[in-house]
Design a protein around this nucleic acid. Structure first.
Lengths: 213, 213
DNA sequence: GAAAAAAGAGAACAAAAAGAGAACAAGAAA
DNA sequence: TTTCTTGTTCTCTTTTTGTTCTCTTTTTTC
C-alpha cells in the first residue's frame, strides 16, 4: 500500500510542498510540467500517481477536480516549516545568543532565502535612512561572513549586537549607520562577529500588532 | 449542494473578492465580462451560477437586484485564505481597477488587519522619507475613507493611482509625498477616490525575489 | 558490461471545462 | 411607445485536462 517513493517522486513532492504558495490555484499537469521543466505530461502523471498512491496528493477523479493538490496531512507537514524563529528585539548590550526563540513568524517567501533565517525586531534609529525604522522586523540569514555593503547583525566584543552596514578591509571593520546623526565605528576584525545578513524587512502600521504565533 | 468549484470558477470568485471595492456598484455581467476580458455573457453566467450555487454570490432574482455581489459567507472566507491577493504594481497613470489579481502572497498576521486587504508593489520614490522604497510591497486595507495623516492609495481623476499621505479638509484634499524633491498636490474632493489605507510594508534585499510567481 | 529499474518523450483519446454567440423576457430609461 | 440593459437559456465549437499507451533514454544494481 504505502510504497516507498523513488528519488524523483520525493523530489517532485518536495517541489509541490515548497511551492504550493507559488501557484494561486492547484496546478494542472501541464503547468507542473513547465514549472518542473518537463516535456511530457504522461511522464509526470506517472509520478503524481505514485504520490496519490502514497497518500500525499489528492486523487483527481475521486474528487471531480482538476489540479494537483496535496492531502491535508501533507499540507500540515508543509506548514510546520513555514514560520521562522522570532528571537525578539535586537537590543544594545545584549548578544544575540542570549535571545531565545520567542515564537515563530510566518514570512513571505520573497523575504527569506533558502538558507536558515530568523526574525528580529529593530530597536533604535540607526538605520532610518536605509528605510529601517524603530519597531520594524527584519529577516536575517544566519551566516558568519558578509560582502562589503551588506547590512549585517554584528556582535561587538561579544557584548553588543547592532544592525549596520559593513565595510571590511585588511585589519579593520567599519560599521556604518544609516543616520546622519550617528557616526561610523571602526573595530579590529577580531572584535566583530557577524551573526547574519539582512535579507528582508517588514513594518506594520497598526498600533499593537503582534507577530508571534 | 456545496459543489466544488472548478478552477475558472475559483479564479472568477477570487477576482470578485479582490475587486469588490473597485466597483462603485455591484458589477453587471456585461461589466464583469469586460473586466475579465470575456466576450460571452452566457459563458460568464454559467460560472456565476456555480458561485451562487456554492453560496458565495447572492442570487440575482432572489433579491430583485441586479449586479454581482458576494455573500456574507464569502467575505468570511476571504480571511481564511492564507494569502492576500497581489494585484501588481502601483504605476503612474494606471488606475487600480486595471490591475488584476496576479497571484497571492503570504503575509505575516502582524502586517494585515481583519478587513479585506491586498498587496501592491511600489513604483517610484515618492515615499522614500517614510521608509517606503521603490520595489517594496505594501499591504493595503481596502476601504474608501481615511483619517488625516494616514498613507493611502488614492485614485486621482479616475486615471492615476498613487501612494501618499492624505490631508482632507473642507473643499480640498491634499496628497503629500514623503520626498523633499516632490511637492504636495491639492485636489477637489470629487477628484480623489480612496482605494485603501496602508497597513503594512515589506522589502526584500535579495536581487530577484518574486513574491508570487 | 548486462540486466533491471526509473525517468522521460510523445502520441492518441475521452471527458470535462470554457468560451462564443444567438435568442428571449422582464424591467428601466429614453 | 421605442430603446436599451439586464439576467437567463440554448446550441455549438474550442480548449484544457487526466489518462493510457508505446518507445527511447538515463540511472541504478548486480
Amino acid at each position: 500500500m504505502m510504497e516507498i517513493l523513488t528519488r524523483r517522486q520525493r523530489e517532485i513532492f518536495n517541489f509541490l510542498r515548497a511551492n504550493q504558495a507559488r501557484f494561486p490555484y492547484p496546478p494542472s499537469l501541464d503547468e507542473l510540467c513547465e514549472a518542473l521543466d518537463m516535456a511530457s505530461r504522461g511522464s509526470l502523471h506517472k509520478h503524481i500517481s505514485a504520490l496519490v498512491n502514497a497518500g500525499l496528493v489528492e486523487p483527481f477523479n475521486g474528487n471531480k477536480q482538476t489540479g494537483v493538490r496535496l492531502t491535508a496531512q501533507a499540507r500540515v507537514e508543509a506548514r510546520e516549516g513555514q514560520g521562522l524563529p522570532f528571537v525578539g528585539a535586537i537590543a544594545a548590550g545584549k548578544p544575540i545568543e542570549a535571545l531565545e526563540t520567542v515564537g515563530y513568524m510566518v514570512v513571505p517567501e520573497a523575504l527569506k532565502t533558502n538558507k536558515p533565517c530568523y526574525v528580529l525586531q529593530v530597536k533604535g534609529e540607526s538605520m532610518v535612512e536605509a528605510g529601517i525604522f524603530d519597531g520594524d522586523w527584519v529577516v536575517i540569514e544566519q551566516r558568519a561572513y558578509a560582502q562589503n555593503g551588506e547590512i549585517v547583525v554584528a556582535l561587538i566584543d561579544n557584548a553588543e549586537a547592532t544592525l549596520k552596514y559593513i565595510q571590511q578591509s585588511a585589519g579593520q571593520v567599519l560599521l556604518l549607520p544609516a543616520n546622519a546623526a550617528m557616526s561610523a565605528l571602526a573595530y579590529r576584525p577580531e572584535q566583530v562577529q557577524i551573526q547574519g545578513v539582512l535579507v528582508g524587512q517588514m513594518r506594520s502600521y497598526r498600533s499593537h500588532a503582534n507577530p508571534v504565533i
